[in-house]
C-alpha cells in the first residue's frame, strides 16, 4: 500500500513500499526534525543573515559558525523539473515529478511536485509546500501549485 499523499491526480503506478525516510546528519537534523513536525526549516547565518541550503556548519560568506534555524514561508517558484520514468522505484508513485524550487528566502530546494499534470509543469510556476509521510513515521516537504496564486502570474513571486 502507498504511504504517499493522496494526490488529486491518481498515480498510474502507485507505490508499493513506503517512501524512504530521510537520513539526517548532525548539520541537517533540524531540517528533517522540522519536516517531521510539518514545518519547512531553513538555516540562516546569525552574523550576516545569509540563508543557505543544504545546511552546513559554517557560513560561506562570513565564516561564522553561529546559525539560526528559521521557519520558511514554504512558497516559491519552480527553477527546473524532471519526470524520472526508468527505473521505477517501488517507494514512489508514477508519474513522478522532481522539482528544484526557488524559495522566497533566496535558497533552492530539491523536492517533488504533486497535484499537477506532467504536461502543465512550467519553470517559474508558483508552488507551496506540504508534507508527505515516509517510512519510520517521518515526513518530507513536497510541493503543489500555489493555491493563493491563481491570478495567473507565471513569473517569480514577491
Amino acid at each position: 500500500m502507498t504511504t504517499n499523499v493522496k494526490a488529486t491526480i491518481p498515480a498510474n503506478v502507485p507505490a508499493t513500499m513506503p517512501r524512504p525516510q530521510p537520513l539526517p546528519g548532525r548539520d541537517s537534523a533540524f531540517f528533517w526534525d522540522g519536516a517531521a513536525r510539518g514545518e519547512l526549516m531553513g538555516q540562516r547565518c546569525a552574523a550576516c543573515k545569509l540563508f543557505r541550503h543544504p545546511p552546513r556548519p559554517m557560513c560561506p560568506n562570513c565564516q561564522s559558525v553561529e546559525r539560526e534555524e528559521v521557519r520558511l514561508s514554504g512558497r516559491g517558484t519552480i527553477h527546473a523539473f524532471i519526470h524520472p520514468v526508468h527505473p521505477m522505484i517501488p517507494m514512489f508513485d508514477y508519474p513522478l515529478t522532481c522539482v528544484l524550487v526557488d524559495l522566497e528566502e533566496g535558497i533552492r530546494i530539491f523536492s517533488n511536485l504533486y497535484e499537477c499534470e506532467k504536461e502543465d509543469v512550467r519553470i517559474g510556476m508558483p508552488v507551496e509546500v506540504f508534507f508527505v509521510p515516509t517510512a519510520g513515521d517521518k515526513q518530507v516537504p513536497v510541493f503543489r501549485p500555489a493555491r493563493d496564486a491563481k491570478a495567473g502570474s507565471k513569473g517569480a513571486r514577491s
Binding site: 539526517p24 513522478l96 518530507v140
Partner: peptide, 17 residues
C-alpha cells in the same frame, strides 16, 4: 540526503535537472 527521499536516485535524474 537531499535527492533520494524524492525519487532521484540515478545519474540521469541528478544531472537531468
Amino acid at each position: 540526503e537531499w535527492s533520494m527521499p524524492f525519487g532521484a536516485a540515478t545519474p540521469a535524474a541528478w544531472t537531468g535537472i
